[in-house]
Design a protein around this nucleic acid. Structure first.
Length: 712
RNA sequence: UGGGGCGUGGGCAAGUGGUAAGCCACGGGUCUUUGGAACCCGCUACCGUAGGUUCGAAUCCUACCGCCCCAGCCA
């Protein structure tokens, strides 16, 4: 069944069954029914799509529920197309629906049915109801029926045709079928209760005349049954025990039961309703998805940005991920909207296990390794999965020129940056350590090339002297790289709730104009040569990608981004940015003297002069349990009182008690800083120096100063 | 205005009278040749509100509030 994915190296055949299958209120109802001996212990469900659109993730929830329950209760789940309205339905949809369900990993064996299979039976039963005096032919027009139905605060009025004789009804109904009346001129109605507070019971329509060619029955029928009349009976015919549907059908249930009861059908099924799935940043209505397709706002039902099963598949989602997601969201009756993050988590979780790792450079920046001979080549062997040696290795050729990601270089590195920058060392994954020695720019000042040197003693990426190399970059050998197109995707809608719009706008106003970015000229490692369509990979440090099932070929590689890797650097940068940005506006930094490049955000003498430096005597000092770096100091600042300061000096102070009594220098006018262990009300001065033995730190002391005294 | 449902931390969601699981998100840390993964910690929930029953209430009762669905010859 999972042949679509198990041909990939290292991918497992099937997601393991969840250890503890989540229970839900539907399973409880079934347990209860079983306990009461209902249905002879049989459990039968069905998935009943209407073939008028493609399946989406919401349907996946229903599919997993229905097929899942059947499997767990030793029952069966039928596939039944609810094809009672020929004007909107089409074979294209039945084919796509079958393919999607199969791809998801479910099997209906030989139990594929169509409501249209039951048209003859349904017709006979309609006659039975007429004879029973429970149905009548009504000549009212559509508008008249609407009027007669009344509304929430007005009872309906009985149709003047409600009391026709059985004989007349029989005759008229037969002639409706025979085509004696024009479309819409007559209907068959159930005779229930025009005063019912439940609108569904105010003599609902059972049949309407529609001269439309049905995708299965062709022109055999001119009258078609309504959903309400067809569904319960179809369930009963198939012996469905639990007919699971969504909440909006809740008040159809009395009608569902009315038909089954009036027809005296044995094996009456039980309808149970659950809340449909909503997802943030997308729409889940077939009507709106169709609109996106028809207005070419997306490339089709299988556009990788669509929440359709086929779209998710093309995006690189796996059946296993989708099933896991459906397990995690639960089943309940409360309206709910699940965050897409949970869906993304499900693919990451699955692909992390199975996707082979590979390197691809999306925005190439050339690096020339000056001390590497032009005519030399190396081939490093790198594991396909860092935690699964059984997945094997791939060869990554290496030469004097390589590409790295443009984003991995900063001429002026921000704080906490441990990628490449002038003078910085970095590891090329699985290859070696390089150091940036020079930056080549074009006339416009744009960086076009980096000059680096490599450390020949670091082959494979491990430094011979054991020095710590914090940053690791992905790379591709320029001489061996393959070109590829890469499609980056973002959420289809900017807003979590696309329906939330300004006055006069609709959901389309929230479409994300940047939801698709096509990158050409990307460089990928040569082991990707000949990758077949629909193959999943992790591009190291970037995310999960798959070869496009339509556009990629072994000679023209096209990758779709499934989901990015979690990016904690992006978070750090986001936090640092707002702190730095306003400062920059307020005080444009003076140009630094020639030859001096300040690392990070420059500050001015003015900034520094603002510091209120005071002599502070250490009254108490203690390590903080749980923190490797911090020591908590209580400082006496004389007239300024006492301060509690958290200082990051623990690694340099063997015993905090030795600090007690010392007079240090404290910055007294810093805004208090909230930290995990408390609030730090100042900062002490220290001098750090880098030596061969490591970092050395010396506290700046003022042994002769009085606590609180100002230091200039 | 009638009817049918639903309200548990930022999002899902367990819980079924005995003192609030789990997942995602978020924050922190350890480790790391992916700033990935893994692992550890935190997120300290007045269970929509107000009363009541009870030794004890998210669970039972009453009232109120809020949200969703229904007036297709769609499903």
């Amino acid at each position: 069944m999972s042949k679509h994915t198990n041909d990939e190296p290292g991918e497992r055949e099937k997601a393991p069954a969840p250890s503890a299958p989540a229970t839900n209120f539907i399973r409880e109802i079934i347990d209860e029914d079983l306990k009461n001996g209902k249905n002879d212990g049989r459990v039968a469900t069905r998935f009943p799509p209407e073939p008028n659109g493609y399946l989406h993730i919401g349907h996946a929830k229903s599919i997993c529920l229905n097929f899942g329950i059947a499997a767990d209760y030793n029952g069966a789940c039928n596939l039944r197309f609810d094809d009672t309205n020929p004007v909107t339905e089409d074979v294209e949809y039945v084919e796509s629906i079958k393919e999607d369900i199969r791809w998801l990993g479910f099997d209906w064996d030989d139990r594929m049915y169509f409501a249209s299979d039951y048209f003859d039976q349904l017709y006979e039963w309609a006659i039975y109801l007429i004879k029973k005096g429970k149905a009548y032919v009504c000549d009212l027009s559509e508008e008249e029926i609407r009027q007669g139905r009344g509304d929430f605060y007005r009872d309906g009025e009985e149709s003047p045709f409600r009391h026709r004789s059985v004989a007349e009804n029989l005759d008229l109904f037969a002639r409706m079928r025979a085509g004696e009346f024009p479309d819409g001129s007559k209907t068959l109605r159930a005779k229930i209760d025009m005063k019912s507070p439940n609108m569904n019971l105010r003599d609902p329509l059972m049949y309407r005349i529609k001269r439309a060619t049905h995708h299965r029955t062709g022109d055999k029928w001119l009258i078609y049954p309504m959903y309400d009349y067809a569904h319960g009976e179809s369930d009963a015919i198939e012996g469905i025990t639990h007919s699971i549907c969504t909440l909006e059908f809740e008040d159809h249930r009395p009608l569902y039961e009315w038909f089954v009861r009036e027809l005296d059908l044995p094996r009456p099924p039980r309808q149970i309703e659950f809340a449909r799935l909503n997802l943030t940043h997308t729409v889940m209505s077939k009507r709106l998805l169709l609109q996106l397709v028809q207005e070419k706002l997306v490339s089709g039902w299988d556009d990788p940005r669509m929440p359709t099963i086929t779209g998710l598949r093309r995006r690189g989602y796996t059946p296993e991920a989708l099933r896991a997601f459906c397990d995690q969201i639960g089943v309940a009756k409360a309206d709910s909207t699940v965050e897409v993050e949970l869906l993304e988590h499900a693919v990451r979780d699955d692909l992390n296990e199975r996707a082979p790792r590979v390197m691809a450079v999306l925005h190439p920046l050339k690096v020339v390794i000056e001390n590497y001979p032009a005519d030399q080549t190396d081939a490093f062997e790198i594991p396909l999965h860092p935690e699964k040696p059984e997945m094997g290795l791939r060869k990554a050729p290496f030469g004097r020129e390589v590409y790295i990601e443009r984003d991995d270089f900063r001429e002026v590195p921000p704080k906490k940056w441990f990628r490449l920058a002038p003078g910085m060392e970095v590891r090329l994954r699985g290859a070696c350590i390089i150091k940036c020695t020079d930056v080549v720019k074009d006339q416009n000042g744009e960086v076009i090339e980096l000059r680096c040197t490599w450390d020949p003693a670091s082959r494979g990426g491990a430094p011979a002297d054991g020095r710590k190399i914090k940053g690791t970059l992905h790379w591709v050998s320029a001489a061996h790289a393959l070109d590829a197109e890469v499609r980056l995707y973002d959420r289809l809608f900017n807003k979590a709730n696309p329906y939330e719009t300004e006055e006069g706008q609709n959901f389309k106003a929230n479409l994300n104009p940047n939801s698709l970015e096509v990158l050409t000229g990307c460089k990928v490692e040569p082991s990707l040569a000949g990758a077949p369509p629909e193959r999943h990979f992790q591009f190291e440090r970037l995310g999960y990608f798959c070869t496009d099932r339509k556009d990629s070929s072994p000679t023209k590689l096209v990758f779709n981004q499934t989901v990015s890797l979690r990016d904690s650097w992006a978070k750090i940068e986001k936090v640092e940015e707002p702190k730095a940005a306003p400062k920059q506006e307020a005080k444009p930094a003076a140009p630094p003297p020639a030859g001096f490049e300040p690392p990070g955000e420059p500050i001015t003498i003015g900034d520094f002069a603002q510091a209120d430096l005071r002599v502070a005597e250490v009254v108490a000092a203690a390590t903080l349990p749980g923190s490797k770096k911090l020591i908590q100091l209580t400082l006496d600042l004389g007239p300024l009182g006492r301060r509690s300061v958290l200082a990051g000096i623990a690694e340099h102070v063997a015993d905090p008690q030795t600090l007690v009594g010392k007079r240090l220098i404290c910055v007294a006018n810093l805004a208090p800083r909230k930290m995990k262990w408390g609030v730090s009300e100042g900062m002490i001065l220290a001098a750090a120096s880098q030596t061969a033995a490591g970092e050395h730190l010396a506290l700046v002391e003022a042994p002769n100063g009085k606590p609180g005294e100002r230091v200039q």
